[in-house]
Amino acid sequence: MTAGAAARRIAMATVVVRDYDEAIAWYRDALGFDLLEDSDRGDGKRWVRMAPTGDAGFSLLLARAATPAQVAAIGDQHGGRVGFFLHTDDFAGDHARLAAAGARFEEAPRHEAYGSVVVFRDLYGNRWDLIEPRT
C-alpha cells in the first residue's frame, strides 16, 4: 500500500433469499457457515450475516426478497455465472457434506492446475465453485 492510501476491503456481499430461516439452515448445514448475526430490524426484516467457520473477515448478508424484482433475482443474482468461490482445505469432506445437504452439482469434481474444483448450486440455484487450491 502506498503512503497515504486508505486501507479497504470488501466486508460483505448480499445474497437475496426466499426465507431467512431456510437460508440460515442451508448455509449452516451444507456449507458449514457460522451465523454471525441475526438481528430483528422490524417489519419482518432481519440483518442476517453468515461466514465460513473461522473466517468472519468476509460475510454473506442474507436478505429476504421484498419486491417482485428481488424475487425474480433469487438464484440468478449473477446472470447464470458462478458468483461465489468457496476455498477449502478438505475438498472431499466438503463435497460429501454438500451432496448430503442436497446441493446440485453441475459436473463431477475435476482436478485443474490450480486445484480441485466442482461447480454446484445452492438451495436457490446460485452457482458456486468449491475449490481446494493446489499448494
Rank of each mutant, 00 (worst) to 15 (best):
H111N: 13
R18T: 11
V15G: 00
I24T: 06
A6M: 14
D129H: 12
L62I: 10
H95P: 01
L123Q: 07
F84A: 09
R41P: 01
Q70F: 05
F58L: 12
A100E: 14
T88S: 10
S59Y: 04
R49L: 15
A69M: 12
A56M: 07
A103S: 09
A51E: 04
G57S: 15
A101W: 05
L35P: 08
P68Q: 09
R97M: 10
D89P: 01
D122I: 01
A7K: 13
F91N: 05
F84S: 05
R41V: 09
R104K: 12
H111I: 13
A72K: 14
A113L: 14
A66W: 08
P109K: 02
G44W: 04
A23H: 03
V17E: 01
G54V: 10
R18Y: 05
A63K: 08
D129N: 12
A23V: 06
A6E: 13
A5H: 12
G32W: 01
G83L: 07
S116D: 14
V48W: 02
R46P: 00
L62D: 02
A113E: 15
R18H: 09
A6S: 12
G4P: 04
G54C: 11
G42F: 03
R121G: 13
G75C: 03
E107C: 08
I10F: 13
G83F: 06
A99D: 09
D21N: 12
L62R: 03
A11P: 03
L130G: 03
A25G: 11
A13V: 09
K45T: 12
R81E: 15
P109T: 07
T14A: 11
F105E: 01
L61T: 06
G57R: 13
G80Q: 07
A25I: 11
V16S: 02
E132W: 01
G102R: 12
R49W: 10
L31H: 00
D34L: 04
A23Y: 02
W26G: 00
A103H: 02
T53I: 07
F91W: 05
A7S: 14
F58G: 07
K45E: 15
T14N: 08
L123W: 03
G80D: 06
D90N: 14
A23D: 02
A11W: 11
I10S: 12
L35Y: 05
A101V: 08
Y114W: 15
E106G: 15
G102D: 07
L86E: 03
V48F: 04
G42Q: 05
A3K: 13
D89Q: 11
G44F: 04
A13E: 08
D40P: 11
G44Q: 07
E112V: 09
Y114V: 13
G75M: 04
P109M: 02
